[in-house]
Design a binder for these strands. Structure first.
Length: 285
DNA sequence: CAATCAACCTGGGTGC
DNA sequence: TGCACCCAGGTTGATT
C-alpha cells in the first residue's frame, strides 16, 4: 500500500510522536516478518534501545536506534504502523508489538502478512538501498535526469515509472494520475517522449506526490496513519479506479485495461499513445 | 533489454 | 447459504 506519500505520512507521524522514546521490549508475533533471520536476535536488537530517528527512502520506512542499528520496514501492499494507547484491545493480524517505556505500544499490522523487516548495522543500509533511483522530491531528480533515463528505453512508460531503480517511490495509483496529468498514454514507448513531455511528466510526478503528502496519503483499502486515520487523497483521484466514469477534462469515458499486468486507468482522448512525428524525439538525441 | 508470470498472503467481492 | 474463483496500492526472481 504505501507508496511514497503514504510512507512519508507515517514517517512524519513517527518523528512527531515516537522518535526519542525508548523501547522496553518487543513481541514478534509473526516470524515471517523477519524472513530467515532468527526471531530471538531480532527481538533482542529491538529491546531496550532509544529510537533516535525516523527516515523514509522511497517506500521504505527506517527507524534509527541508539545502538547504531537501523530497522528497515517494507510495508508493501497492506502494512500499517499503529500507535496504540495502553488500553486498546489487541487487533488481528498484528505481526509485531513494540512496547515503549511510557506504556504506549506500536503495532505493526498487515492483513496480507507481506510486510518485511530487516536490521542493518552502521553503513549496511546504504549498501542495501543503493539500487534505488533518486527520490522524486529530492534535488537529484531533475528534468534532465528523467529525460536521459527515458531516452533509449523502448519500454512502455507506465511500467518504467514504477521501476524503483529509475525513480523510487511511485506505485500503481500515483503513476496513473501522473500520466493523466502529463497527458501521456500508459503504453507510450518511453523513448518517443519529447523534451516537452518529459518536462510535463517531471512536473506531474512532483505535483501528484506532493498532493498525496498534503492529503496524508491515499486510502483505497489499507493505508492508515500512525493514529489509525485514513488518508484523504483518494477523494482527489481523477482516473484511478474510475473506469467508465467521465474524464474530468474532456468528459469522455475513463478506460480500464491491464498494462504490464497492473490495473491501469487513463483517458483515451486526453492521453496520447503515439509521439507526434514533428516532436523532438529523445531517441535521436 | 523487454515482457510476462508466479509467489508471497488474506479478506472481500462476485457469480453460480 | 455455500463454494469456487478472482482481485488487490508491492517486490522479487525465473523464464521467454
Amino acid at each position: 500500500m504505501p507508496q511514497l506519500p503514504e510512507a512519508e505520512t507515517i514517517k512524519e507521524d513517527l518523528r512527531e510522536l515516537v522518535v526519542g522514546s525508548k523501547t522496553l521490549g518487543t513481541e514478534l508475533l509473526d516470524p515471517a516478518l523477519v524472513e530467515q533471520s532468527p526471531a530471538e536476535e531480532f527481538a533482542r536488537r529491538l529491546t531496550d534501545v532509544r529510537i533516535t530517528g525516523a527516515r523514509r527512502r522511497a517506500k521504505h520506512i527506517i527507524l534509527d536506534l541508539d545502538s547504531g542499528d537501523s530497522l528497515d520496514l517494507q510495508l508493501k501492499l497492506a502494512g500499517q504502523l499503529l500507535l496504540v494507547p495502553p488500553v486498546e484491545p489487541p487487533e488481528s493480524f498484528v505481526m509485531l508489538v513494540l512496547h515503549l517505556d511510557d506504556e504506549r505500544r506500536i503495532y505493526l499490522r498487515d492483513e496480507l502478512r507481506l510486510t518485511r523487516a530487516r536490521f542493518f548495522g552502521p553503513g549496511e543500509l546504504e549498501k542495501e538501498l543503493a539500487d534505488l533511483g533518486p527520490d522524486p522530491l529530492e534535488d537529484g531528480f531533475t528534468v534532465e535526469y528523467l529525460r536521459r533515463s527515458l531516452g533509449g528505453r523502448r519500454s512502455r512508460i507506465k511500467p518504467l515509472l514504477m521501476e524503483q531503480r529509475l525513480v523510487a517511490g511511485i506505485g500503481n495509483i500515483y503513476v496513473d494520475e501522473i500520466l493523466y496529468d502529463a497527458r501521456i498514454h500508459p503504453r507510450r514507448k518511453a523513448s518517443t517522449l519529447s523534451t516537452e513531455e518529459c518536462r510535463a511528466l517531471h512536473a506531474a510526478i512532483r505535483e501528484n506526490l506532493e498532493a498525496g503528502i498534503e492529503h496524508r496519503g491515499t486510502t483505497v483499502q489499507f493505508h492508515r496513519d500512525l493514529l489509525g486515520r485514513p488518508g484523504e487523497h483518494q477523494y482527489y483521484l481523477r482516473v484511478f479506479e474510475r473506469g467508465g466514469q467521465p474524464c474530468p477534462e474532456c468528459g469522455g469515458k475513463v478506460a480500464q485495461e491491464q498494462v504490464g499486468g497492473r490495473n491501469t486507468y487513463y483517458c483515451p482522448d486526453c492521453q496520447i499513445e503515439n509521439g507526434s512525428w514533428e516532436s523532438e524525439q529523445l531517441s535521436l538525441m
